[in-house]
């Protein structure tokens, strides 16, 4: 009985889904989905090689310091970095005194100790990086209704994170004429900017890195747009996961120990089973 009910239920589900298949195939054949400009012109991120790549990768501290400088002088005008504290800058190779001085160069919200009124004060190492806007409404109002996202986790929040940030920063360009020829309705709207590395091709952010030498690096490195984009991508890789090198450095001894223990376990198993005749694969497949 149960088998007859089963066969009936199975046939019901199978026929239902095959009916969906037939209707889907029919509509796909009669009215194929039109190709979209996003589909045709979206590009995968360019290649970017950072010192932190790979299972042995670790930070290039000079590059992180340069990237921090780019964030501070360019990105921080619109983007917050709310999960990173000033004290974390010590990990970039700054001394305690340098971090203190660096923190003091930021202005953070505070409370006047005499009146209790909200005010601002110089930052301290325990402070987190401040948001450039008091709230989301102000952020949206200042940016054509698009709220600039927090950058702390940006390189983990996108596919190919670091390469994506680098490509986006260097990818602003004129809309290709073939695109407009093929998709006349896909013209970049007023106030947006064409960038083939952005998922829907047009984003609200204006090109932030516009000319070589926009930042004057403290270490004398020549600040080309490409260099600045690489450096800030490296910096944002650090902000997304400051513990990354520790993770990889922990992983090797762990794997080494496990390999050793597993070999021992295998030998122990062979030893224990040696008095039982091992299974010959008698079941012929």
């Amino acid at each position: 009985m149960i088998r007859f009910i089963g066969i009936a239920a199975g046939a019901f589900f199978a026929l239902s889904v095959l009916w969906a298949f037939v209707t889907g195939a029919y509509s796909a054949a009669t009215e194929p989905a039109p190709e979209t400009a996003e589909h045709a012109f979206h590009k995968h991120p360019k290649e970017l090689h950072l010192a932190s790549d790979g299972p042995f990768g670790t930070w290039n501290l000079e590059q992180l310091q340069r990237g921090y400088q780019v964030y501070k002088e360019v990105c921080s005008a619109c983007h917050s970095l709310k999960f990173v504290a000033m004290r974390d800058l010590e990990q970039l190779g700054y001394s305690e005194a340098e971090v203190k001085a660096e923190a003091a160069s930021w202005t953070v919200p505070g409370i006047d100790p005499n009146t209790g009124e909200t005010t601002t004060r110089p930052g301290e190492p325990t402070d987190y990086f401040p948001s450039p806007y008091p709230n989301n409404v102000a952020a949206a109002a200042a940016n054509n209704n698009a709220i600039p996202p927090d950058l702390s986790l940006m390189t983990k929040a996108r596919h190919d994170g670091s390469a994506y940030v680098y490509s986006l920063l260097t990818g602003f360009q004129q809309q290709p004429t073939e695109l407009l020829k093929k998709f006349p309705s896909a013209k970049t709207p007023e106030g947006l900017h064409y960038n083939p590395y952005f998922a829907n091709l047009n984003l609200a952010m204006a090109p932030p890195l516009t000319m070589d030498g926009q930042v004057t690096y403290a270490d004398g490195t020549k600040a080309t747009i490409d260099q600045m984009a690489q450096d800030v991508s490296a910096f944002l890789t650090w902000t997304a996961e400051p513990t990354m090198p520790k993770r990889k450095q922990t992983g090797w001894p762990v794997l080494g120990f496990l390999l050793f223990a597993t070999i021992l376990a295998y030998m122990a198993k062979q030893q224990i089973w040696s008095n039982v005749k091992p299974a010959k694969n008698k079941q012929d497949d």
């Binding site: 066969i7 239920a9 199975g10 046939a11 589900f13 199978a14 889904v17 095959l18 298949f21 796909a28």
Partner: peptide, 24 residues
């Protein structure tokens, strides 16, 4: 999107057929 929807439809049909029709 296609072809993944059509592929999963065929696979789903077989999935139910396997347990409810083929095995008995």
């Amino acid at each position: 999107e296609e072809p993944y929807v059509m592929l999963s439809q065929v696979a789903t049909a077989y999935y139910f057929l396997h347990f409810l029709v083929v095995l008995p």
